[in-house]
Design a protein around this nucleic acid. Structure first.
Length: 589
DNA sequence: GCCGTTTTCGGCCCGACTGTTTTCAGTCG
């Protein structure tokens, strides 16, 4: 059962090997483009093929790539790829993992030095054989050596979770603004601005009268550990704790074109350029050039830039190069859900279990965010390690919360994050669960169960009359723990049937559901909430990450139930489940 | 290999930086 990522990897490798062979660049790009498109599709290619739907129509996928995709799904291999592998030296793909080594260098190193491993490469550099190659030199060899050494700790495609990268970006921005009064604008661009769950590096874009001053100030910031490149308009550096930051500064007039260009995605830009070409225009980061006259138009903001191309401004979160251009042309983009639409948080811990602050603090912080409701959901009894609450303590907590609710304008909902046990039963009695306003049921144990059993386990919990929400469905921890094996499509169907709501867990370590799941859930009409799983009042601010995931799934406020005002939200979660199913089908939000 | 409100053939995104070169190739995004 190949995932979209597996299929994308096949075409990435095709592209890399064709590039080494010296194939025409356009063929290479076609494979790269297909790979990246497939990686970001909101549906499973494997399922689409199984249901007999064509792949043609997906941008960048034509006859040849469709055939190879089907071949891969059916046989687990692609003959053309195997043949290419046979023609080229073993290990060249490994060498290409080293930053600074592209296809040309990888081939020369393999052919002329007989080196096909990272260890062999390091040896060749230390012995001076690398620098002796034509158009190679001491500095190039030295740089590559530095990268191979870093590689033993981190690979080229090791990505940083957005929850780590965004605060780093914000810190650098603040520091640079502080030292550079002439800096008029400065924002994160790239995958960070598109709110991808992980980023490869941090792109910062700005506008200033004297770009060079800002660039020079950047490379000497205390956060900078190592300067990689430093020119008049652009610099790259590694900042603490080891993330690469690329900074570009232009003058005000071309700021719109700059941020458009560097927000990407690459696929989005390639499609945009394609469109511009057909209009007789050429795009770059400084503006739009009329090819016939050579006249350059500059744009101070993105809206005007897109308008010149006949397009509605697209939120960065949807710029993945799949279907947004068609909708922007028809001015049919949805108004995506915003942080300000959120009326409550439904997954919050306190120091009664493994949270770090008292109930009072958490409730006051939720009220201070302007929420109309908040649910306290400490762990259930079975979570010994998280100081889960025995039923008696939970009953005490309910009393305390009733009292708190009376003293605050915010509605304080009683709740629990109850374990779904390995056999699909829940960790409290039915009477206990029925006494709660909000029951978030989550898997925390026996995560290695096989797919069918895990799926049935979760569906059994969804059918329980008192279960309101399923928490962090796939249990993944970004770059730390793989998701559990679960049939997400079956879970979505069960959600529609049972009225169980699915959580978008906004904790930046989780982001679970993830963007493409949310996109699919939205298409099916599956009810969703966004919750922070906060263990500290500061973490209520993680809501922004969850909202971003929903936006990447093209959700409007009506798709997210905790955008509902208090009375309607309470009516919904207190309705018996069959009634809730009916309300949700009507489009309650 | 993909694609078409100029085209089913002939195009295909564009520039910065580095290191090695005296005009440019390779890599990256």
């Amino acid at each position: 059962m190949p995932s979209n990522a597996d299929i994308a990897a096949v075409f990435e490798q095709m592209a890399a090997l064709l590039e080494m062979k010296g194939e025409v660049v356009f063929k290479i790009r076609a494979y790269q483009r297909a790979a990246r498109t497939i990686e970001h599709l909101p549906f499973s290619i494997e399922e689409r093929v199984a249901s007999g739907q064509p792949l043609k129509g997906i941008p960048g996928i034509g006859e040849a790539i469709e055939k190879k995709t089907i071949e891969f799904i059916q046989t687990g291999a692609v003959r053309a790829l195997e043949e290419l592998r046979g023609e080229l030296p073993d290990g060249v793909l490994t060498l290409m993992n080293v930053p600074g080594i592209g296809p040309k260098t990888a081939m020369r190193v393999a052919r002329e030095l007989g080196v096909t491993t990272i260890e062999g490469l390091e040896k060749a550099i230390l012995e001076g054989r690398m620098a002796a190659l034509p158009r190679m030199g001491e500095k190039t060899a030295e740089n590559i050596l530095r990268h191979t050494r870093a590689l033993s700790l981190r690979t080229k495609d090791k990505r940083t979770p957005i929850g780590v990268a965004l605060p780093v970006a914000e810190e650098v921005i603040a520091a640079l603004r502080d030292r550079c009064p002439g800096l008029r604008k400065l924002i994160p661009a790239g995958s960070l601005r598109r709110w991808r769950e992980t980023v490869g590096d941090i792109d910062l874009m700005g506008a200033a009268d004297e770009p060079q001053q800002a660039i020079d100030a950047f490379v000497v910031l205390p956060q900078v550990m190592e300067v990689i490149g430093h020119g008049p308009k652009k610099a790259s550096a590694v900042v603490k704790p080891g993330i690469q930051v690329d900074l570009r500064i232009v003058e005000d007039e071309s700021y719109g074109a700059l941020i458009q260009y560097f927000t990407g995605s690459q696929q989005h830009n390639i499609r945009l350029r394609d469109r511009a070409n057909r209009m007789g225009l050429s795009l770059n980061e400084y503006g739009i050039t009329d090819i016939a006259t050579g006249r350059v138009e500059e744009f101070a903001d993105e809206e005007a830039f897109y308008a010149r191309l006949g397009l509605q401004l697209m939120p960065p979160e949807v710029r993945e190069g799949v279907w947004e251009l068609e909708l922007a042309e028809k001015r049919a983009l949805p108004r995506l859900v915003e942080l300000g639409d959120i009326r409550g948080d439904l997954h919050v811990h306190s120091d009664w279990s493994d949270g770090r602050e008292p109930l009072e603090t958490m409730v006051a912080a939720a009220a201070a965010r302007g929420y109309q409701y908040v649910a306290i959901t400490d762990h259930s009894a079975g979570r010994g390690i998280a100081n889960g609450l025995a039923e008696e303590r939970l009953r005490q907590q309910i009393d305390v919360l009733r009292d708190l609710s009376a003293r605050h304008s915010i509605a304080v909902l009683t709740g629990s994050e109850v374990d779904i046990r390995a056999d699909g039963t829940l960790d409290y009695s039915d009477e206990m669960l029925a006494a709660l306003d909000v029951v978030v049921a989550s898997v925390h144990s026996a995560m290695g169960q096989e797919r069918e059993r895990m799926t049935q386990r979760i569906i059994q919990a969804m059918r329980h009359p008192s279960v309101t929400v399923i928490g962090h469905l796939t249990c993944r921890l970004l770059e730390e723990r793989d998701p559990i094996e679960v049939d997400v499509e079956a879970i979505f169907q069960a959600a529609l049937e049972t009225g169980a709501i699915l959580e978008i867990n906004a904790s930046p370590e989780r982001l679970d559901l993830k963007d493409i799941h949310v996109q699919r859930a939205r298409e099916l009409g599956v009810p969703l909430v966004i919750s922070t799983d906060a263990h500290h009042s500061d973490q209520l601010a993680h809501m922004r990450f969850g909202v971003a995931v929903a936006r990447r799934g093209w959700c409007e406020a009506r798709h997210i139930l905790n955008t509902l005002p208090r009375e309607r939200f309470l009516a919904l979660i207190k309705a018996p489940k069959p009634e809730r199913v009916r309300l949700i089908k009507q489009g309650v939000a």
